[in-house]
Design a binder for these strands. Structure first.
Lengths: 342, 342
DNA sequence: TTGAAAGCGCTAACAG
DNA sequence: CTGTTAGCGCTTTCAA
């Protein structure tokens, strides 16, 4: 065991109460005493036990964050921002990786429940019910997800979402303006709220512009998954694809390259997030930009000052680069888009 | 506050001690009683306080992990593996992002010290001294870093490293066999132990094969940094580059593409880690493969069974793909490698 | 300004 | 098998 406050108090010739006050910077202790206690504490390499302190104060000083997949590069800047913002206020982060599993996520919530002051659920795969129940035990910040309209919203629940509609609508308008009459959406995880959200918005936007709309699923929202299905989409007659995120789009780009479909000549590709470093995608990816860091900052704010009970949202906008272009061969045989070389 | 064990005990008509025993699955309680306690606990939605339990047992059930940059895609599979392995044994993970700063890392160690059973320091930027001191307070697993030979090794310290030498040597031999007579190493963070390690090994290997060796630094070990310096290297007469990691290599590839230097025609590029999904790099990247997940598994093992005090290591091997090729124009003007188009 | 004492929620002897 | 008792290390009344 390490040094306890009792030892410090003894060594400094004061009571534990006084030592406690001195260490916590209370004004109810005369300066000379404080100095002495502090010096002794330093000499003894004393670190106060958070556990004991938490037990009596009821505050732990850390917040839990649960994400579906720590391997997903969208979440790491989110976490980094959350951590640096919160860390400045000396709160620690307990990070849980739910691995896209509801059971695992629930287990993590359970496990964290007694050692955090608040919980951030990012892209949660839990049911509305489970979330409401959690929010009954401690403050919850729901990120990139909104509760159904029918459930009673608990007081201790904040929602931080991505306002995807403007960006996504701009994307559809952009494609429409380029002469595309159809759109394929390469979807994300089945349980994902934001995937459903994107589906809905795209569907509506396409309907309004009289474009046909198709949804195709992927196993996981990553490069490999995009690459797996990208080829089939490119050769199936699709002229424009919007993907769940940039990783998937990158995979589609790679697939197109593999089979010799030109982008944007043969097919236009639009990603989501703008999470890729400049120059990584070839051609440069047109995408619905949305800052993961901003999402993290907003989430942190929702914890620090739970004043604003209204739903916060980070904005999105279309960033047009080189992966989208005019729809040239509307009536041509899809196979014609495949270069002879392939 | 939530339900306490005292309330459960009262409702079940037993003492707290019995309730505690029933809940912790002790065999010293008759089955009927246990059932009753368990039922009541479930009804009251009771979750035992980890804090209180930890305070008395001295065990927290969580381990801390500190990494220099959570945004670095090498660490996320490492974390994922660590978490899933450890999580199976019901231990929680406290993750700290040191942001490449020694001060911040030390602060995290301090903060975690009273709420973890062990600490994993990955690619630590701390001084040997600080690490030894930490290991004096609780078990430490040092990952991708080794203490200097002169410091007294504490008992509670395990080292898990990457055995980079075989892979890196194979890389140099590979280039030598291809006719390259010089090698440029694009280095990682200044404080990084593994960067120094790579420098040393490459230098030695080059000397042995009578190849000239140059080291160039980057700001951060990521794509953007690689892209920034990649162009200068490609046009400066270098015929072969080994990078600190795959992200940097990817940046170099992008830079070469930008300025029109062919890979491997104009320059050969070798990465480290093999962390990129298949098909991401164009051309496919020759790399010194090393599994971050294996590193995570080994680290987890070092915590679960601290039996093996010997240094564990994950192996590396050269994976030859398409980014390395014969050194064609040994005497030609470097500028000649730049395509006319650029 | 300081100290003594109570207690946060739980576990672990020790009796019964 | 079960209850009583004593703390784990700290904060916080309440007195002095």
């Amino acid at each position: 065991m390490s040094t306890t406050m009792r030892q410090v108090a003894a060594a400094a010739g004061v009571s534990v109460a006084t030592a406690s006050r001195a260490l916590s910077g209370s004004s109810l202790v005369v300066d000379a005493t404080r100095q002495r206690v502090l010096r002794v504490a330093a000499e003894l390499d004393f670190t106060p036990s958070r556990l004991a302190r938490s037990l009596v104060t009821g505050l732990t000083g850390n917040v839990g964050v649960i994400i579906p997949d720590i391997t997903n590069p969208f979440f790491t800047p989110f976490l980094a921002e959350l951590e640096s913002t919160l860390g400045a206020g000396d709160v620690g982060l307990l990070i849980g990786n739910a691995q896209e599993s509801r059971e695992r996520e629930q287990a993590l919530v359970q496990r964290m429940s007694t050692q955090v002051d608040a919980l951030v659920l990012a892209s949660s795969r839990l049911s509305d019910d489970q979330i409401v129940r959690a929010a009954g035990r401690f403050p919850v910040v729901l990120v990139n997800r909104r509760l159904g309209a029918d459930v009673g919203r608990p007081v201790a629940l904040a929602e931080v979402v991505i306002d995807i509609e403007p960006g996504l609508r701009a994307a559809v308008r952009h494609l429409h303006g380029l002469g595309h009459t159809e759109l394929t959406y390469l979807d994300g995880p089945a349980q994902s709220w934001s995937a459903a959200q994107k589906r809905t918005v795209l569907n509506r936007a396409c309907t309004e512009l009289e474009m046909s709309f198709t949804v195709t699923g992927t196993a996981r929202p990553d490069f490999a998954a995009g690459r797996e299905v990208g080829g089939a989409i490119a050769t199936s007659g699709a002229s424009a694809v919007v993907t769940y995120n940039d990783q998937v789009a990158l995979g589609v780009l790679a697939a197109c390259y593999d089979i010799g479909v030109e982008v944007p000549g043969g097919i236009s590709v639009i990603g989501c997030d703008d999470s890729l470093p400049t120059g990584l995608a070839r051609p440069a990816l047109t995408t619905v930009a949305c800052s993961a860091r901003a999402l993290g900052a907003l989430s942190a704010a929702a914890i620090v000052e739970p004043t604003t009970r209204c739903a916060d949202a980070v904005s999105t906008r279309l960033v047009i680069r080189k992966s989208t272009g005019a729809h040239l061969s509307a009536t041509a045989n899809p196979a014609a888009r495949v270069r002879a070389a392939s």
